[in-house]
Amino acid sequence: MESDKNWRLKLRYGKIETPYQHFTVIADGVAGKLAHGFQCKEGPAFMTMKTWCSDAEESAEMIQGIGADIGFTVQGRIQIYETEPAEPPRDNPFGYDISFTPYGSER
């Protein structure tokens, strides 16, 4: 896929074509011991991720699968929004910009 700095304009004006849509996904769940490179206090948390994929359903499946691989279990609601991308599309669906936000009592 195009890697130059003008990819947004090229995508907007049809110079780059992709079968994928861009989403931001927020999932409610529980963070366990997370994989190397990810940080969050163990317990209730939100996981956020940006995705390039076919549709919202695939985006929900991606956050569940990638979350499980990292050590996060989706146990609540998944919210999906169409958003502007921060990275260009690729040849296959992918997720990026993953983060976690813990919540709950500080006891």
Results as ranks from 00 to 15, higher is better:
Q79C: 11
D4E: 08
S54L: 11
A35N: 09
R107I: 12
D91H: 15
E57R: 15
G95P: 08
A27F: 04
E84D: 15
Q79T: 08
R8P: 01
I98P: 07
P19C: 14
K5Y: 11
P93T: 00
A60G: 08
G14L: 02
P89R: 01
K5Q: 07
P44Y: 13
C53H: 04
T48H: 12
Q64T: 14
R107N: 14
I26T: 13
E87H: 12
T73G: 11
T48A: 12
H22L: 00
G95I: 09
D28H: 12
Y13I: 15
L9C: 03
H36I: 03
D55Q: 06
G14I: 09
A68S: 11
K10S: 03
G104C: 08
A45Q: 09
I98T: 06
A45V: 09
M62K: 03
S59D: 13
P102M: 01
Q39T: 07
D55H: 10
A27P: 13
I78S: 08
T48I: 15
G14R: 06
Q79D: 15
R90C: 00
P93M: 07
L9G: 04
A35L: 06
D28S: 07
S54Q: 14
A60C: 10
A56S: 10
G43V: 07
I66L: 01
D91I: 02
Q21S: 15
T24R: 02
D97R: 15
K50F: 00
K41W: 12
P93I: 01
D91S: 14
I98F: 09
A35Q: 07
E42T: 07
N6I: 12
E87V: 06
A45T: 14
S59V: 08
E84A: 15
L11H: 00
G71T: 11
E106C: 01
T51C: 04
G29I: 06
K10D: 00
A35M: 14
E42I: 04
N92R: 15
S59I: 09
F72P: 06
R12I: 05
T51A: 10
D28N: 05
M49V: 01
I98V: 13
M1I: 10
P85C: 13
G65P: 02
T101D: 04
K10C: 02
P44N: 15
N6V: 07
Y20V: 05
Y13D: 07
Q75I: 15
D69A: 12
F46C: 02
G67C: 06
F38K: 04
S3I: 08
G104R: 05
S3L: 06
R90M: 03
K15F: 07
A27D: 02
T48R: 13
T24Y: 01
V30D: 13
E42M: 09
A35V: 06
S59R: 13
M49N: 03
T73K: 07
A27L: 09
F38G: 09
E42N: 08
I80M: 04
M62D: 00
I80R: 00
R12C: 10
M49F: 02
I16W: 07
M62W: 01
G43H: 02
E106S: 04
E84N: 12
P88G: 13
D4A: 03
L34G: 05
R12P: 04
T83I: 11
I66S: 02
I80D: 04
F23V: 00
N92T: 15
G32M: 10
E82Q: 14
G67R: 03
